[in-house]
Design a protein around this nucleic acid. Structure first.
Length: 301
RNA sequence: GGGGAGAUACCGAAGCGGUCAAACGGGGCAGACUGUAAAUCUGUUGGCAAUGCCUUCGGAGGUUCGAAUCCUCCUCUCCCCA
């Protein structure tokens, strides 16, 4: 039986270090599940593994794309599954690590097939939202896909726009694409997540952000400033600096906001799996517990 | 030493006799989530055995059927004049 070991958890908890130790222990490789570390222009602000870490274990999906490429959870699913199958020809165990919960979900459970959306169409809908407000979008969705209209969060423009763009693009309802069926994978998935006391996590986040600043996050963000409109740069650590560059806030405020927004991001990540019984929680210092847990599972199978 | 302004929940800040456990903002916490997901959106935020009860609006008294709101004294902060 092939096993995919998922190691996730909030940002700054120490996933990289743990994943490397686990991968070395089981003599295998690491697939990154991080929606921002895939961009080669982003290093400091996304805390990509350093050269020595990348040399210690082979990593995939780090710096593989450009911020101007379109990438999303569905593409990641396709790419990752293809890679996982290839790696399983060589290894019995593969490690998947990262904090992008939707990406991990796409690999574990699959995501429905929906045609690619024309960027212009999306833009038009965005403009419509800006000019006419959400009510106009709701009204259209109610007509085009009443079933989904009943289900969606009607206050969330992103959801409504997405459903609408699918309807307009395909001429079919968004509901018709939402099979919501969990895809069966031909390998076992072991879900683990790292976590610690909230205060400890906040300390880790603060020191990490300070560290990013000394490493030159400001300059990295400045280089990205001309591309600030890209979704890939709607990212904690960059957008706060963009506001600073535009004189909207002072630098100290930007740094403070990066810390706050990172904390919030960590909280959202925790919410994703907190009540999921499939997930085994481990303290990042407790690698032995994690290794034992994995070995026990292997022996049972 | 003289004059003035103010002390409100985690923070900032409204309220100026009942409809106040107290607007609003921030922060915190909780949650949703299927192609933008480090995104987007929502709820909650004195305590509890909770359609009610208890303790709160610097402190101590007082007026009143009733006070965060009025009066007296005290403590502290800020500003102006000396």
């Amino acid at each position: 039986m092939k096993i995919l070991i998922v190691i996730t958890g909030p940002t700054a908890i120490g996933k990289t270090t743990v994943a490397i130790e686990i991968a070395r222990h089981f003599h295998t490789e690491i697939i990154s599940a991080d929606s921002r570390q895939i961009y080669r222009e982003l290093s400091i602000g996304t805390a990509v593994p350093g050269p020595s870490e990348l040399a210690a274990v082979k990593h995939y999906f780090i710096h593989t794309h450009s911020v101007s490429d379109t990438y999303n959870a569905s593409r990641y699913e396709t790419d990752a599954i293809e890679l996982i199958e290839k790696l399983f020809e060589k290894y019995d165990i593969v490690v998947l690590t990262g904090g992008s919960m939707l990406y991990i979900d796409a690999v574990c459970n699959g995501i429905d097939d929906i045609p690619d959306i024309d960027p212009e169409l999306r833009n038009n809908l965005k403009m419509e939202f800006k000019n006419k407000g959400i009510e106009s979008l709701r009204h259209q969705l109610k007509k085009m896909d009443p079933d989904y209209y009943m289900k969606v969060d009607l206050k969330n423009p992103a959801r409504i726009i997405h459903a609408l763009e699918v309807c307009l693009m395909t001429g079919k309802t968004y509901t018709s694409f939402r099979k919501e069926k969990t895809k069966k994978r031909n390998f076992l998935i072991l879900k683990t997540a790292l976590n610690c006391e909230r205060e400890e996590l906040h300390n880790k986040i603060n020191t990490r952000v300070d560290d990013m600043i000394t490493k030159g996050l400001e300059l990295e963000a400045l280089r990205m400033y001309p591309l600030k409109h890209l979704n890939s740069l709607n990212t904690v650590g960059y957008r706060e600096f963009f506001d600073y560059f535009e004189g909207k806030i002072v630098k100290e405020k930007a740094i403070e906001l990066i810390k706050r927004n990172t904390r919030r991001y960590a909280r959202k990540q925790l919410t994703w799996y907190r009540n999921n019984p499939e997930v085994t929680w481990v303290h990042p210092e407790n690698k032995m517990q994690l290794i034992k847990f994995i070995e026990n599972t292997i022996h049972k199978k």
